[in-house]
């Protein structure tokens, strides 16, 4: 039987009844387990995956490589905190490799993203450099394929 969290990871639109059946639990047990996961901070929230290209709205996502000077006592955490406070920041990760922090931001125009980088991000104390990469096309996100291959129509039906 599948773990509740794995089920939610695959499809967070499942209702408690469905989750219960899929996990082989009762609905009460399922509700209690979800509450417990939330309380412990294991289950943070649910987010839909939207293909904004098909919706009539400009939507721009960029990945920004940030190099920083870590601070005594706080390491990277304090700078990270300052960065993630901004609404525009979708995700923020501490990285291994040639840069330190990876910021994913989205905005409604190139200008908005550019302003964020030049006026907000790069002026934070401790940030020593940025490199902005715009995402040109999304193929897959969180295991969801943006344009799934269509199945061929003629199917064999005798069984």
């Amino acid at each position: 039987m599948k773990n509740l969290l794995r089920l939610l990871e695959d499809d967070c639109s499942l209702n408690t009844e469905q989750l219960a059946a899929l996990a082989g639990m009762t609905e009460e047990e399922t509700k209690a387990a979800l509450e417990e996961y939330k309380k412990q901070g294991i289950l943070l929230g649910y987010e839909p995956i939207i293909n904004w290209d098909l919706y009539d709205e400009e939507y721009i996502t960029a990945l920004i490589e940030v190099t920083v000077i870590p601070q005594r006592g706080d390491g990277y955490d304090r700078i990270a905190q300052r960065i993630y406070q901004y609404e525009e920041v979708e995700s923020l990760y501490l990285m291994s490799g040639s840069f330190d922090l990876c910021v994913i931001i989205s905005g409604h125009s190139l200008k908005q993203v550019a302003l964020f980088v030049s006026q907000k991000l790069s002026t934070i104390e401790g940030v020593s450099g940025t490199a902005t990469h715009f995402i040109l096309k999304k193929y897959k996100e969180k295991r969801m394929i943006f344009k799934p291959q269509e199945d061929y129509k003629e199917r064999f039906v005798l069984d």
Partner: peptide, 13 residues
Amino acid sequence: KQEYDGRRRYLLD
């Protein structure tokens, strides 16, 4: 198998 089993229980219920 696990996927089918979950759907099986859901449909049966």
